[in-house]
């Protein structure tokens, strides 16, 4: 017998009733879903950042060495001392050099993976990038300590190739060397590139994959050579993605303090300054003020990246 009643199932308990509430008021479910994670990130993360900012406006009493919890700009003024400006400038220069070099090394890998690798090869390339990117940071740094050590493989190779004296002479140069590669600025640079370059490859590859094939066909139809098509079609279209990829490399180089601690001539970088001021020096306010520097630099970098359209490419 047909009934005119609408096909509504009988309610079977609180679970059904809740489902009905969520159905009628989707916002309730949304709020329930978002509250725990936002509470965590809001309190733990943003709260900590606020504490950092607060701490940076405190100062340290020069006699007692205790933190004076009163608002002052004195700590920020200290950042402009010559030796501190030096640290900031050195870090910035290093981050720029590392980012540019990384782009040069990463681009062929990304380009090949995006345009020519298919099937099995594509998977292999993906794993080939993911595995080093994800493997242990410290192990990777340690590997380079082995490689760059005075008695290590680089020296051995250089001697085998008859370039031993050349390496020795290069290490004598002020800007280049130290007693060995593992205590030289060049060593620091190489390891920075090695560690933070992989973060660039996948965003670059994604950007290159988004360049439509039809445009390349059009370029070829209009008589462009491969080089011309690359310069006038592929590169401009992929540039936002390349810039997006550089964000991670630049940012992570900017704050790294483990690498210069293990490999290099113990010249100080921002991260190292933060670590030392909060630790042995016990100057929490100055450490906090130093930590604000990369935040400000990153904000500027992100603003530039946004102008270049990098965010639409992410």
């Amino acid at each position: 017998m047909l009934s005119d009643a609408p096909a509504v199932l009988p309610e079977r308990g609180p679970a059904d009733r809740l489902t009905a509430v969520f159905w009628r008021h989707p916002r309730v479910l949304l709020v329930l879903l978002l509250t725990p994670p936002l509470l965590w990130l809001g309190v733990v993360y943003l709260g900590s950042l606020a504490a950092l900012l607060l701490q940076s406006f405190y100062s340290i009493d020069e006699f007692s060495g205790l933190v004076v919890p009163e608002f002052t700009l004195k700590t920020y003024a200290e950042l402009f001392r010559a030796q501190n400006l030096d640290i900031i400038l050195r870090t910035l220069t290093m981050a720029v050099l590392v980012t540019l070099t990384s782009a040069v090394i990463a681009f062929p890998i990304a380009y090949f993976a995006a345009r020519f690798a298919r099937g099995r090869w594509k998977a292999l390339f993906y794993l080939g990038v993911m595995l080093p990117l994800w493997s242990s940071y410290l192990v990777k740094v340690y590997a380079w300590k082995l490689i760059l050590a005075r008695e290590g493989i680089v020296t051995w190779l250089a001697e085998r190739a008859g370039a031993g004296p050349l390496l020795g002479r290069a290490l004598d140069e002020q800007w280049f060397g130290g007693s060995s590669l593992s205590t030289s600025p060049v060593g620091t640079f190489i390891v920075f590139v090695y560690i933070w370059m992989p973060y660039m490859i996948l965003p670059m590859q994604a950007a290159l994959e988004r360049v439509p094939g039809s445009m390349l066909e059009a370029a070829a139809d209009l008589g462009a050579s491969r080089g011309q098509a690359f310069r006038t079609v592929i590169l401009p279209l992929a540039l936002p993605g390349i810039v997006a990829g550089s964000i991670f490399t630049f940012s992570l180089t900017l704050g790294d303090y483990i690498i210069p601690q293990i490999i290099g001539n113990s010249a100080r970088f921002i991260g190292l300054a933060v670590y030392q001021f909060q630790g042995t020096a016990g100057n929490l306010p100055l450490a906090a003020a130093f930590a604000v520097v990369p935040i400000v630099i990153m904000l500027v970098y992100l603003a530039i990246a946004k102008r270049l359209g990098a965010f639409d490419a992410l």
């Binding site: 978002l34 607060l54 704050g255």
Partner: peptide, 28 residues
Amino acid sequence: QVSLLILLPIALPGVITGMALRSAFSVV
């Protein structure tokens, strides 16, 4: 903003997250 907030802890250098937490532990 929510997706940015989630991304920030790994997009900003670790030293910032570390120092921020360190400051918070000291403040509270």
